[in-house]
Design a protein around this nucleic acid. Structure first.
Lengths: 238, 238
DNA sequence: ATATGTCGTTTGTTATAACAAACAACAAAA
DNA sequence: TTTTGTTGTTTGTTATAACAAACGACATAT
């Protein structure tokens, strides 16, 4: 009886938001990945996640299947879904493809960006500087992502955006490793500013070069975190 | 009773092959897409496909969910899966990303290809010529795909391969439209041969240029098939 | 004749149960 | 002590039923 009431309540709740349960599970998993809330190498267990989300295993299974199909999660033995534990070689490969795709997107963006677009990105850059000063590093990661994708969105090529987001998701579990050590040194900030300046001058080649440099610099730092076996590990597991 | 027997038989069958049912459904759908056996714009119906495959809707649902997650199928109203009906702009975008990625893969391949690798690809090229002469166009499409991916595999970058395959799948429904008109004119064959020659000379830039030219040429032909609304249609619907 | 409302059908979603494979723990034998 | 066999648990897979939203057909009303 209480069971029935709970079910009805849940149904009504889900009806309000107008989106399937698996969609919500998918979004929550994606966000958790990007925020680095999952231990690289760990297994994602259907019934466990279902309990967390308060649903049956069906929507969770759906969400995990999609993530695996996107290459965001690996499929381990017994078709289980595991959080990828990126090795050096995989990181090098992803970085290369990222440079290729994000570089091209930046070049295209230079042709289409309006002054208003640039100003909006400039505001994000100011936010980012403030967050570093205040050591608000979680928030920084989020705005940093919006800055990059803000540029790529200007290119107006949805498929490019999709593939770039996929690449970010693939290194999601280790993306947060750049904080705090790397980010607070302001290593990449010059590239961000320089890319924006180039965009304002409509200099596509220069903007592309800056973004590529930014990606490669972060890639090199992440690579330096690799342990002898090639796995990328957080500096202080805290 | 007969029902029970049938189920048991199916179980044993699936146990033999050692792969989940959804995996087989996924592979069959992928193959059908690449072969152009699905009408662009049509909806893929769970219960219908389930009957075709002789399974319940669960594995089919799984397979479709993955295809949609990969961007290979679109999700229509009511979260249904539909075969994408590519428009001009989408085709232009995909062609651009293909050039970027397949060009880069070819350049990398030039550094790693051994004479034996080139010889194997040369054999495929000979096959392709024979198939065109015999007008074995379905078989041609298949070998043509193996030729391209044979080159990209030489780069040894799994993530690149994955993303390129994804792009091919995205235009799978219209890929077969290049036959028979375009292919029999041998338009692209020179590029294939020239790319292979460049690979043999370890001239990465030249090989990349040939592959890019091949992709762009096919892209232009496909674009010329667009009707006034921008949709790409088969020349003679047979 | 066109508009509208009702009802049955289609179809994706979710929960659930039965199932089999993998794994771990523990006990028994060499 | 080490190895092996058994058993219980965990966990992904599949089939199935109940469900709700969308769609279409048909009848009724204006």
């Amino acid at each position: 009886m209480m069971d029935t009431n709970a079910t009805v309540a849940d149904r009504n709740l889900s009806r309000l938001s107008r989106e399937p349960l698996w969609d919500r599970a998918h979004a929550q998993l994606r966000e958790a990945l990007l925020a680095g809330r999952f231990e690289p190498g760990s297994a994602l267990v259907l019934r466990h996640l279902a309990e967390t989300f308060g649903t049956s295993i069906t929507p969770v299974r759906d969400a995990l299947a999609r993530l695996v199909a996107q290459g965001v999660l690996e499929q381990g033995p017994r078709n289980s879904a595991l959080v990828p534990d990126l090795r050096k070689s995989a990181l090098v490969d992803i970085t290369m493809v990222r440079c290729e795709l994000e570089g091209r997107a930046t070049r295209e963006a230079a042709q289409k960006a309006t002054p208003a677009d640039i100003d909006a990105l400039d505001a994000l850059l100011a936010d980012m500087r403030g967050m570093i000063a205040r050591r608000a590093l979680d928030a920084y990661l989020d705005v940093h992502r919006r800055f990059h994708f803000g540029i790529y969105a200007l290119a107006g090529i949805p498929i490019l955006d999709e593939m770039i987001e996929n690449l970010w998701l693939r290194c999601g579990p280790i993306l947060s490793f750049v904080v705090p050590e790397y980010v607070v040194l302001l290593k990449g900030t010059d590239h961000h500013q320089a890319a924006l300046d180039a965009l304002r001058r409509r200099d596509g080649a220069a903007a592309e070069a800056e973004i590529v440099a930014d990606i490669e610099e972060a890639g090199r730092y992440l690579l330096s975190l690799a342990d002898p076996s090639g796995r990328i590990r957080r500096r202080v597991p805290a």
